[in-house]
Design a protein around this nucleic acid. Structure first.
Lengths: 196, 196
DNA sequence: AATGTAGTAGACAGATCTGTCTACTATCAG
DNA sequence: CTGATAGTAGACAGATCTGTCTACTACATT
């Protein structure tokens, strides 16, 4: 045990990760402009100087939040899908995962769609992160579709299904109905070739 | 001519409507939190007191902007669709109208999806206006679908197509590709019964 | 003529925003 | 022991936010 008896008020921990985690939660629920850094700091119990030693600006914190959100999103989705084996079942899992997401209490839409809506291209880095996230989801869909439709038809259908997922997010956000996920999956099944 | 020779510095006009028009343009392009009332007033050339005699708060102005946006949206869409007569052509017009919208220079997504994303239910009036707008679009789709699919199948397909439109908006916002509208229309055609 | 309404210009209050800075403390490497 | 690093607490600057208020002007109706 190298740790002595005396200890700092807050034990040795990764403040940076804690900041990102807190900011992710608050930005997801409250929006990027509506949540100020003071709010993030108070919630995280971290001093302002600490934030600005790790990040040059609030936008840089938002960018890191989006990168972290992308990692968690993809990991959670992949873990959910990997509990299933049949190709059609795995594809259905993507929509089922979205349904669970829509049902979460603080659901307030997709952080990437929202960042595009709030900054609408004025902050190039954030717009790029949103685009990359959506592209990653589409690429993931291609892999799920290939066993069902063959390698040629998969990319176009993946783009279609990606649009369906964004549509479900929008409908769920405005109407509050988590059933938008099932509607999207119902449409997806009808769009799949009969051979699948 | 009842108007005398002398005139006020700004000619007699409907300041309220001018305020709403200016605010609509700025909020659409810049977002609701990012644009302050001072910016709206400067752009409109109107005094602050005038705004607060017509509206009790900024949120009330946003609400009126959304009502105006809903009126213009529906009128513009209906006028576009009414230039066509064949039922299938009229339905296609909805997606074509969206394509034109996506191609507009300052396109920054749907003001109703955006208000839901920025305030996410914290301001009940705004959330309700967003819901009503989307409901109105869906009802309009029902009317366009009935000649094609019959009165029984139209409501469910209208909800489907509404989701497609929201999906196209999201894809266009993040990717910048106006072709999302055609993708959505391509999906819509495939979802229509073969008899249509 | 008198009064009320709507407008302008802009100061002002009070809050909140991002970002910087000072002063101090704790941990760790050498 | 010394110095570097990272942390805390919080004051501070300067901008910006919403909303109120004063003082004045123009117009319309009575």
């Amino acid at each position: 045990m190298p740790s002595p008896l005396s200890s700092p008020p807050v034990p040795r921990a990764d403040k940076r990760a804690h900041l990102v985690d807190t900011a992710l939660r608050l930005f997801a629920a409250g929006g990027y402009h509506a949540i100020g850094v003071d709010r993030v700091l108070a919630e995280a119990g971290v001093a302002k100087k600490t934030l600005y030693t790790h990040f040059p600006s609030k936008n840089a914190l938002i960018a890191e939040v989006l990168r972290e959100r992308d990692r968690r999103f993809r990991a959670s989705l992949a873990a959910f899908v990997d509990r299933r084996s049949a190709p059609l079942d795995r594809l259905a899992g993507v929509f089922a995962w979205h349904r669970q997401w829509f049902e979460e209490p603080g659901f307030a839409g997709c952080m990437f769609l929202n960042v595009a809506a709030e900054f609408h291209g004025e902050v190039a880095e954030l717009q790029l992160l949103a685009r990359e996230h959506k592209q990653a989801v589409e690429t993931y869909l291609v892999g799920l579709l290939e066993p069902l439709t063959g390698i040629d038809a998969a990319p176009a259908l993946a783009a279609d299904f990606n649009l369906l997922l964004d549509g479900a997010i929008g409908v769920a956000l405005v109407s509050g109905e988590a059933g938008a996920a099932e509607r999207a999956w119902s449409m997806a099944r009808r769009l799949l070739p009969a051979t699948a």
